[in-house]
Amino acid sequence: MINFNGDLLAENSDYLNHTNRGLRYGDALFETLKYNGKSILFWEDHYFRLMASMRQLRMEIPVSFTMEYLEAEIKKTLKSSQMETAPARVRVTVFRNSGGYYLPQTLEVSFIIEVTRLSEAEYQVDESQCIFELYKDYLIPADGLSRLKHSNKLIHVLGSIYASENGYDSCFLLNQKKEVIESLKGNIFLRFGDKIKTPPLESGCLDGIMRKQLLKIGQRDTRHQWEEAVISPFELQQADEIFTTNVIQGLRPVTNYRKANYQIEAARQLTETLNNRIRVMA
């Protein structure tokens, strides 16, 4: 089932048309969430990121858009799709209502909630081969918009096509200064011995929810020193370990990049810590 502005519709329903501003101009935001069969993981962080992003894009936030209301709508959609007790991927899309050209006729919004069943409730470390390359055809501008989960992801789409056509599992992305900022599927972390680095938001990386959780873990991590610092392409082959992060997969180790092969030990340890934190929060 699809939840469109609170109404539950069949997935094959025709509820949008050619005037949709998300389709026409990319005038939309989205949040991808993980539901573990009991609760929405990191829901408060997702909610406040969505609200901050809507304000930044000058969208009018409805009075009804409280944390409790949207959570209830998500759970209503899960229940109607028979996933109330199953792990699921949830996508919440918010777009400005139709009307106008570049200048919208209204700042009011609509929303869509979609759910897809997942196989695992807890995070697992996928240790299978994961080969990366550097995607250089297009660069992500390091500005305030690059941190948002907006619907213009053309660089990620083209990078994914490039990776598929050339036998890679994913790619690292660069900003206009040729700094490494993220991967096609999430934020990146590099480990050099006992030091873990991730690009700062100022480099233009996504303000990721899983990135935020790991930085919180890093504040109490006695094994590693954590820092947000600019990462150059030359550092990629020097790292002992690289992993990417998002809220659906958790931590995904990179196994190979060009001539470099990487370890997986920090990804294992941090995934265990992350799952323990989630169990305590439940």
Rank of each mutant, 00 (worst) to 15 (best):
M83V: 04
F30P: 09
L103V: 13
M1T: 11
E202I: 13
A10C: 00
A10L: 08
Q237G: 01
Y168V: 03
L251G: 11
L251W: 07
E179R: 15
Y35G: 03
M210F: 09
Q238R: 10
L206G: 03
Q176C: 09
L33C: 06
W226I: 15
L50T: 03
Y15A: 04
E127Y: 00
K197I: 15
Q249S: 12
P199G: 05
M281S: 12
Y257P: 00
A52R: 15
F192M: 02
N276E: 13
Q219N: 13
Y135K: 10
M51S: 05
A260K: 12
S80H: 15
I161T: 02
L190G: 01
G159C: 08
R258V: 07
A28M: 03
W43A: 11
N97R: 14
E71K: 12
Y138Q: 08
S81A: 12
V157R: 12
I264T: 14
T93S: 12
N187A: 09
Q213W: 00
N187Q: 05
R55T: 10
F192L: 07
N3G: 12
L236F: 10
S110H: 15
E31G: 03
A72S: 07
Y69M: 02
E11F: 03
I140G: 03
P199R: 03
Q269P: 00
N256I: 01
N12Y: 08
R117T: 06
G144Q: 10
P141L: 06
Y25F: 14
H224S: 06
L148I: 14
K75P: 05
V247S: 15
A266W: 06
A267F: 00
H46N: 07
V115S: 15
F42R: 06
T244F: 14
V280P: 00
K38L: 09
K177Y: 10
K149V: 04
N152W: 01
R252I: 08
R21T: 00
L118W: 10
F189A: 07
R91G: 03
E272P: 00
L33K: 10
I188E: 05
L16W: 01
L107H: 08
N276W: 03
N97W: 02
R252C: 07
S39R: 07
S128W: 06
T222M: 13
D7C: 04
K212Q: 15
E179F: 07
K136F: 02
M1W: 04
R279D: 09
Q213D: 00
E227K: 13
N97I: 01
K34N: 01
P141N: 12
A142L: 01
F192I: 04
N175H: 12
S98Q: 09
H18L: 13
H156W: 14
K153R: 15
F234W: 08
G37L: 14
E71F: 04
